[in-house]
Design a protein around this nucleic acid. Structure first.
Length: 498
RNA sequence: GUCCCCAUCGUCCAGGGGUCAGGACGCGGCCCUUUCAAGGCCGAAACACGGGUUCGAAUCCCGUUGGGGACGCCA
């Protein structure tokens, strides 16, 4: 079994394409097949090496490694279409020689007029066939004289083309509705429908799995397979990925590229797991499936037929799951860039890194994405009573009966205490309870507000020691300065009129 | 416009002649809890419509409607 993913390097890797790549990869993985990566860069206007690099990078990040490709080589290379030009040229001239293709001299302007007229007359806007009957000899001499021409395939008229689609079953087209497609453009570059066929055949691809938008290209390609006598691969067309408004997922729906999801703190295993569930299911109702499981269970036959709406909420839920399961070490190293981005650290040293790593478990269990971790820990670095008191949920806590007493007692208690660890904090809270008679939420809520400046957040048992550990950090740690609990309580008490 | 594809809760998927039409996300409620989250439990929520076939249709067939795709010297 030989499968391929064939992106054109014209931008970022879209999640829809990532899903196509994933399905191909899953099948290769599960069936002991070969996964080939081919770059379709025949549109030199839009293709760039930079986006090729980006796409490969995203694919690697997802873990969809390939056996053959432009960077790793292979027996069927080269794997960039721009490096296969002579191949296409010779196959094209074979077709011309055998009468299956012809030169077309129609200008862009003529074709535009044709199209407009066809549309106006409610006819399908296919090529009218103006150059179909040109004598080959004359065409060749026109080209010799310097005229530009494209090569078009001569679609046989009056017959049906049918092919079997592994996910949809038998599909049939009347050649009447198919215009003669361009095989070679006037600049000598092959057109998509031609290059894919040559490449898939020469690379001995056995299963072509791609987006549904290619389904109507398939009959043209089948005709080419026939003309060359190539053996046809199995085709499978995947329904599209849509946005919430049922239009193809695009920028205005928010994030659409793998790179964006990656930047927002989604994990590769989450994206892979989620994408696999878009149009497919293991049938057993399980939703969390690690990639090994996916490749073992995935099959084309159980892929759905209808378009799927991309659900960012469900992706988040899956991500939360993997985030909770992850080791602290990996979590810490993945979270580090977000701390830096939030201004909580700049090139931290070993001590600083250890401190930041110690914070992560406190936040990671209650967050959808890595991106949200800093916000959950903001209380450490941004303590400002004046500012906090402006927030209604904070001033409400302070306004509760007895809350001021708690805060004042806390301030005087901490004034004589060293930096707090978990035990010392518990002891201090116990003495505040004795001094004020407050307990439960009436005790801890004011304490939280005074020490963190926020009405919610991680457990105080963890948050408070973290604050004082941070306060002890030296400047060289690379971690932004953290105000200690004693100073916090004092400042807060002063602010509420003590 | 023509051709092609598609149609089960708001969303993603099970179910493919007899099911109380199942799960998950999200939503609502309750519980847990020193807070916000997280977590646990419970709940509301769907077979697009019309004709057939059949003892019986969400399931098979036809049509309608709706959605999507293609009709490029883009891929």
């Amino acid at each position: 079994m030989r499968l391929r993913f064939a992106p054109s390097p014209t931008g970022l890797l879209h999640v829809g394409n990532a899903r196509t790549a994933l399905f191909n990869w899953l099948l290769a993985r599960g069936g002991n097949g070969t996964f080939v990566l081919r770059i379709e860069d025949t549109d030199l206007e839009r293709s760039s090496r930079a986006s090729e690099v980006g796409i490969l990078d995203d694919l690697r990040w997802l873990g969809l490694h390939w056996d053959e490709g432009p960077d790793v080589g292979g027996l069927y290379g080269p794997y960039r279409q721009s490096e296969r030009l002579t191949l296409y040229r010779s196959y094209a001239s074979e077709l011309v020689d055998r009468g299956h293709a012809y030169y077309c001299f129609c200008t862009q302007e003529q074709l535009d007029v044709d199209r407009r007229e066809a549309l106006a007359a409610n006819r399908p806007p296919k090529y009218v066939g103006r150059c179909r009957q040109l004598a080959l000899q004359q065409s060749r001499s026109r080209i010799d004289r310097g005229e530009h021409a494209v090569v078009r395939f001569r679609v046989p008229q009056g017959r049906d083309v049918h092919f079997h689609d592994v996910v949809r079953g038998d599909v049939q087209f009347d050649t009447e509705v198919i215009g003669d497609p361009v095989l070679v453009r006037s600049d000598g570059f092959p057109a998509y429908n031609f290059a894919v066929v040559i490449d898939d055949a020469l690379m001995e691809i056995t299963h072509v799995i791609r987006g549904e938008d290619h389904i109507s290209n398939t009959p043209r390609q089948v005709l080419l397979y026939e003309a060359f006598g190539f053996q046809q691969p199995a085709f499978a067309h995947l329904a599209l990925v849509l946005g919430p408004d049922h239009t193809p997922l695009s920028k205005r729906h928010g994030a659409t590229s793998v790179a964006e999801f990656r930047a927002r703190g989604f994990l590769p295993e989450s994206l892979v797991n989620y994408l696999s569930l878009l149009g497919w299911s293991p049938g057993s109702g399980e939703e969390i499936l690690p990639v090994e499981e996916l490749s073992r269970r995935f099959s084309l036959e159980s892929v759905g037929h209808s378009a799927a709406v991309f659900d960012a909420d469900k992706l988040s839920w899956i991500n939360r799951h993997y985030l909770r399961e992850m080791s602290v070490d990996r979590l810490a190293s993945l979270a580090l860039p977000y701390f830096v981005e939030a201004g909580f650290a700049a090139d931290p040293n070993e001590e600083g890194r250890r401190f930041l790593a110690s914070l992560v478990p406190m936040a990671a269990g209650s967050v959808d994405r890595l991106e949200q971790v800093p916000a959950r820990l903001r209380f450490l670095f941004a303590f400002d009573p004046v500012d906090s008191l402006r927030a209604p949920e904070v001033s409400e806590v302070v306004a509760e009966p007895g809350a001021r007493d708690v805060i004042l007692a806390l301030a005087s208690e901490l004034a004589t205490m060293p930096r707090l660890d978990r035990e010392l904090f518990r002891a201090a809270a116990g003495r505040v309870r004795q001094a004020t008679g407050q307990k439960g939420r009436h005790l801890f809520h004011p304490i939280r507000v005074a020490l963190t400046g926020e009405a919610g957040g991680p457990e105080l048992d963890m948050a408070v020691p973290a604050i004082d550990r941070g306060a002890e950090l030296g400047e060289r740690s690379g971690v932004a300065p953290i105000i200690g609990c004693r100073e916090r309580a004092e400042a807060f008490a002063r602010e509420i009129g003590f």
